[in-house]
Amino acid sequence: MSRPVLEIAVQDLAGFCVAADAGAVRVELCAALAATGGLTPSAGLLAALVAERDARAATGATPPGVHVLVRPRPGSFVYDADELDVQVRDVRAAVDAGADGVVVGVLTADGHVDTAALTALVEAAAGRDVTFHRAVDAVEDPFAELDALATAGVTRVLSSGGADRSIDGVRRLAAMVEHTAGAVQVMAGGGVRPVDIGALVAAGVDAVHLSAGRPVTDDGGPGGGGTAGYTVTDPAVVADAVAALARVQPTDA
């Protein structure tokens, strides 16, 4: 088993730079993370991150891979044909823009992975990594769904083990790792704090995912969401996560 890696969910170029400077292996690029759990980011934002990634690589550095969340709206992960069409277009656009991978999640109304929709999204990804996000935490039997993800060609699954916070779902995460036996990578995510990383790695996960967010109070007025503000990537939290990951070893190391 290789050493687990760190993925940071980011919403802007500054967040990517924080993750890159800290040595994260991947970023998940999204929008409206705190308010919605994440939505598809803009084309301009993706272009900016890809340009920064490529500029860093040109210097001989190994910047994080850019993985794009494709989620057209908040709410459930059950989508109609028009919403799926938009997601397929967004996946293709992300690939054409230079993304290293995409992050998707599609379910049927009765709580299973929507294999037909997922197949269309994997095909649109054209060989790039596909991560199935925490939609898996909304299914009744995640172990059966892991098999469906493997068959569809999904690279990894992001899960909290069915809990609000991944540390509370760590036993299920360990069981998911055992069940899939490497056919699908299992990445722990959901309310992750640096202090949780040791226990999550002990469960055998391939990666740990966190947003490392810090709230910023900013009044947008009646037309801009009032005083809801927004979140930014906190360099101190990312540094703590990197240090925590460095202190632990894989379970069979």
Rank of each mutant, 00 (worst) to 15 (best):
residue 184 V to E: 06
residue 183 A to C: 13
residue 192 V to M: 01
residue 183 A to L: 10
residue 173 L to H: 06
residue 160 S to G: 09
residue 151 T to N: 00
residue 162 G to Q: 04
residue 184 V to H: 13
residue 184 V to Y: 13
residue 182 G to W: 15
residue 160 S to V: 06
residue 150 A to R: 01
residue 168 D to W: 12
residue 148 A to F: 04
residue 193 R to T: 02
residue 172 R to H: 06
residue 172 R to E: 04
residue 172 R to L: 08
residue 169 G to I: 00
residue 182 G to N: 14
residue 196 D to I: 04
residue 186 V to R: 07
residue 192 V to R: 08
residue 171 R to G: 00
residue 197 I to K: 06
residue 154 V to I: 06
residue 180 T to G: 12
residue 173 L to S: 02
residue 160 S to L: 13
residue 194 P to C: 02
residue 169 G to C: 03
residue 177 V to I: 10
residue 147 D to I: 02
residue 188 A to Q: 03
residue 163 A to Y: 14
residue 161 G to Q: 09
residue 154 V to R: 00
residue 154 V to H: 02
residue 186 V to Y: 11
residue 179 H to N: 10
residue 157 V to Q: 01
residue 149 L to C: 05
residue 188 A to K: 05
residue 165 R to L: 10
residue 176 M to P: 05
residue 187 M to T: 06
residue 183 A to K: 14
residue 168 D to Q: 15
residue 165 R to N: 11
residue 172 R to T: 12
residue 150 A to G: 09
residue 162 G to L: 01
residue 178 E to K: 14
residue 183 A to W: 12
residue 167 I to F: 12
residue 195 V to L: 08
residue 173 L to E: 05
residue 178 E to W: 11
residue 181 A to T: 06
residue 176 M to T: 07
residue 194 P to Y: 09
residue 155 T to N: 08
residue 182 G to P: 13
residue 147 D to C: 03
residue 148 A to W: 07
residue 167 I to P: 13
residue 178 E to T: 14
